[in-house]
């Protein structure tokens, strides 16, 4: 790993200042960034830890739904979101392993936008709002392809606000080695309709499955998507699963998520 200067501000304002410098990069839980740095695929000159900022921690209800501080580790979301948004809590409780959940944060995951990460599916399916040190970004505008987001240089996530659906479920099929999502589906049923977000499957990162949303908005039952097929054109094909296999998983897991939704 290349060396760097380590700073750990205690306020969003100080973090913003530190990140305005040349070569500075934010560090949240580090559960993805550190392995990347070990491989020398990332080489920041200044690393700005966001885990010491109290105003970026915690889970609470408020305007627009459930507010989760960006530096909140998965283990806290799994525990504290459980009574408000069980599907989100279950998702957080299924990320990585206990040690990863103790360090990894929602902000880190959403900022990184790994195509096989769990949180992006929840954010997109819930129509959540990504709040940064500069602005609020709608989920539909935020995700822009794998590892690509609307975040600008020096901008970092401070919280994510989740509208709470009537019913939801997240069903994840593990990639057998990494335990990331080989494919996973988050289904969320709101008054105004159903949103279905898929992670792990597409070359374009997390995406909404529009046909399923339409069918499920009309009839929220697994049988409603029985006649749909998922094209495999943009699906990831790798040693763990062909494009066709992932396309199959999208449908199978969506059906299971609908059945499991509560």
């Amino acid at each position: 790993m290349h060396n760097f200067e380590f700073v750990k501000p205690s306020s969003i304002a100080d973090a913003a200042l530190a990140l305005s410098g040349e070569g500075a990069q934010p560090l949240s839980g580090g559960q993805t960034l550190l392995p990347t740095m070990k491989q020398r695929l990332a080489a920041p000159e200044v690393l700005v830890s966001l885990t010491g900022i109290a105003e970026m921690q915690g889970v609470c209800t408020g305007d627009g739904g459930l507010h989760i501080g960006a530096a909140t580790p998965h283990v806290v979301v799994a525990r504290e979101a459980a009574s408000h948004f069980p599907a989100l809590a279950a998702l957080a409780g299924g990320i990585g392993d206990p040690a990863v959940r103790n360090r990894g944060t929602i902000g880190g995951s959403v900022a990184n936008n790994d195509p096989a990460a769990c949180y992006p599916a929840a954010v997109l399916a819930s129509g959540a709002v990504v709040v940064t040190n500069r602005r609020k970004i709608e989920a539909d505008d935020y995700f822009q392809g794998m590892f690509t987001t609307a975040l600008e240089e020096g901008e970092f996530i401070t919280s994510v606000v989740f509208p709470i659906p009537q019913k939801a479920a997240y069903v994840k099929f593990n990639q057998p080695a990494s335990r990331f999502a080989l494919t996973a589906v988050f289904v969320a049923k709101f008054d105004g309709g159903v949103r279905v977000a898929v992670t792990g499957a597409s070359n374009n990162g997390v995406f909404r499955w529009a046909e399923a949303e339409a069918a499920l908005s009309a009839d929220f039952a697994a049988s409603a998507i029985a006649g749909l097929t998922v094209p495999d054109t943009d699906m990831i094909s790798d040693l763990h699963g062909s494009a066709a296999y992932r396309a199959n998983l999208v449908k199978v897991l969506t059906g299971r998520a609908v059945t499991a939704a509560r």
Partner: peptide
Amino acid sequence: GACVVHVDGKAVKSCTVFAMD
């Protein structure tokens, strides 16, 4: 997980945490 230790009572992978943090 061979490197798991507890930091402030929580299990963490000590290979994935900077000492300064």
